[in-house]
Amino acid sequence: MTLLAVERIKLFSTRSPWWCMLAALAVTCGFTALITGTSGDDYPVSVQTTQFASNFGLMVILVMAALAVTTEYRFGTIRATFQAVPNRTAVLLAKTGVVALLAGVVGEVVAFASWGIGKVMRPSADLALNSAADWRHVAGVGLVFAVGAVLAVAVGTLVRHTAGAVTLLLVWALLVETLLSALPTVGEKIQPWLPFNAASNFMLMGGTPPPGASVVSQPYGPWGALAYFTGVAAAGLVITIVVANRRDA
């Protein structure tokens, strides 16, 4: 518990988490308002529509999670931490847990705020959470944010440089996966196994996707998609812990 408290204090003692949380909320809710406000009869507002912009918030959360560890490497505080607590595995697990919990809470706030915006702007639309799929579309955003934060911490610890870690995460999520999915012949086969695509499908599968969103045929259901995304993040964290225990701080 002491180690968790230390990691919480270190995280909130810098400005970047606060700015990232505000940015995630502003960007997601702003795009949700824009999408909802410009929707017409051809694309009626649905529960899924209110969550389409959550991917933008996820990108901000990835940056926040990466900064949580790369900032320590930048200023050398990670060395003091490892000296005070020689068990590096415990340190990294505590840091990951704190960041993932914060990301999950932000995800839930962002998701229900976006849903609320849809209810206010389109009171006549059917936005009731009547099914398990509806609840997954909204409440599932927090789970994706939390798992994404685990993956971002792992990448940040491996790379140790803010620019490199943030670039790798954003380029992979926003560009590389799109390019790989567009490859002739093999694109459709590998698309279901791209981690951020799996995360997106967890939030969107089961219903009519919002305009511009694509849900490809998956060899697994929505919860299988989340399990796969979680498995990738967990594998990255295990590799990170092994590497961190073998190299100098």
Rank of each mutant, 00 (worst) to 15 (best):
P123W: 00
A24M: 02
L102N: 05
I9Q: 14
I61A: 09
S39V: 04
P219R: 12
G107M: 03
G97T: 09
W193I: 03
L25I: 12
A128Q: 12
Q48K: 13
A182H: 00
M1V: 14
G224A: 10
V47I: 03
F145D: 02
R79Y: 04
V150T: 07
A128T: 05
V106E: 03
A66F: 00
V110L: 08
E72A: 10
A53M: 03
V60S: 09
K189F: 06
P211T: 05
K10H: 07
A5K: 13
V106L: 11
A225C: 15
T89E: 11
A113M: 10
V155H: 07
F202A: 11
L11M: 14
S217Q: 15
Y73M: 08
L25E: 00
W18M: 10
A182I: 04
T36A: 15
F112E: 03
V155K: 08
A125R: 04
T28C: 14
P86L: 13
V166D: 07
S200G: 14
L4R: 04
L102E: 13
T89W: 06
G40P: 00
A227M: 11
L194K: 09
L170F: 04
N245H: 05
V216A: 14
G97L: 08
G118S: 09
H161T: 11
M21N: 04
T28I: 09
L179W: 12
A113Q: 03
W19V: 15
A244F: 05
V150H: 00
V120C: 09
Q48N: 09
C29T: 15
M205I: 02
T162N: 13
